[in-house]
């Protein structure tokens, strides 16, 4: 079968070079070059008519050291971490249950998990806003049931922002976890029980180490986007919290201070690169641990 399907070797090489060239070209033109442009912009001076001008300077980075911006950065990080924790607490048992369900139903359930992506995330964020509003359906139902006397203040709170982010990013946590749970051999858990480990000990010493690659991948896939999705905080948090994304957008559009916006953007990219690097290190540790 395979021999029939594949083109002759010479063509295959050509195809491979073409595909490789395409993906490298893509990365070069749409990832590397724009990032270098942003880096260059962050090192220039601002100019009232042309946005940027020479000479080179580190002034924008110096201005980022203002405790105000450190606080904004820490706020953004705290919000992203809370989101990640929420996704992990919900996603872990979900992925486990998904891997234990009758195989016939699993494709359908995974499909349902991905289905919301067919709707734009901005539209879904506005939908959550409607649900949480003081005269929205949730407060309406609670009032009708007599559980509360006045509408709860749900919208425009930190909780609403975290709820929105968890809702939007949960599949990114579940899918990598589901992948490791599917590969997990149930005999290992049985062996642990046979050797006298209780439920908690099995969970801590067997299940968590075995699913750690999935936990790490999911954490990364949730944490990084959560750092950048400032529009969720704007819509559900009432734009009262300033995040790194807001600073970048404000500086580029409203204040027209491109170097400063670029410097904030570089800081965010550097923080993400650091997290990716930590992830790599952790994975290598894991693999080395398995090898012998």
């Amino acid at each position: 079968m395979a021999e029939v399907a594949l083109p002759p070797p010479r063509h295959r090489n050509l195809l491979r070079s073409a595909l490789l060239g395409l993906s490298w070209g893509w990365l070069l033109a749409l990832v590397l070059v724009p990032n270098l442009l942003v880096l260059a912009a962050s090192l220039l001076n601002r100019d009232p008519t042309h946005f940027l001008q020479l000479p080179l300077t580190l002034d924008s980075y110096r201005r980022l050291l203002d405790p105000l911006y450190l606080r904004v950065f820490l706020d953004s990080l705290a919000l992203a971490l809370a989101t990640t924790l929420g996704c992990l607490l919900l996603g872990y048992p979900f992925a486990w249950a998904l891997s234990r369900i009758d195989g016939r139903w699993r494709p359908l359930l995974v499909f349902l998990l991905i289905l919301p992506f067919w709707t734009n995330s901005l539209v879904r964020t506005y939908a959550i806003k409607q649900l949480l509003a003081a005269n929205g359906p949730l407060n309406g139902a609670l009032l009708a049931l007599g559980l509360i006397d006045a509408p709860l203040e749900l919208l425009y709170t930190q909780g609403a922002v975290i709820l929105g982010l968890v809702y939007l990013l949960l599949p990114f946590m579940i899918l990598p976890l589901y992948a490791v749970f599917e590969d997990l051999r149930p005999e290992l858990l049985l062996a642990s029980r046979d050797l006298g480990a209780g439920r908690l000990a099995t969970f801590v010493h067997v299940l968590i180490p075995l699913t750690l690659p999935g936990i790490l991948a999911g954490t990364l896939l949730v944490l990084l986007p959560a750092l950048g999705m400032f529009y969720v905080a704007d819509i559900l948090g009432g734009a009262r919290v300033l995040l790194v994304g807001n600073i970048i957008k404000n500086q580029f559009l409203d204040a027209r201070d491109w170097p400063f916006g670029a410097a904030a953007s570089i800081l965010l990219t550097a923080a993400m690169a650091l997290l990716l690097f930590a992830h790599r290190l952790a994975r290598r540790r894991l693999r080395d641990g398995e090898a012998p």
């Binding site: 105000l68 606080r71 904004v72 706020d75 734009a239 009262r240 919290v241 300033l242 807001n246 600073i247 404000n250 500086q251 409203d254 204040a255 027209r256 201070d257």
Partner: peptide
């Protein structure tokens, strides 16, 4: 404009 934005960021943060 820069002064306004300086205080706007402060106000929000």
């Amino acid at each position: 404009t820069l002064i306004y934005h300086h205080y706007w960021d402060r106000l929000k943060a």
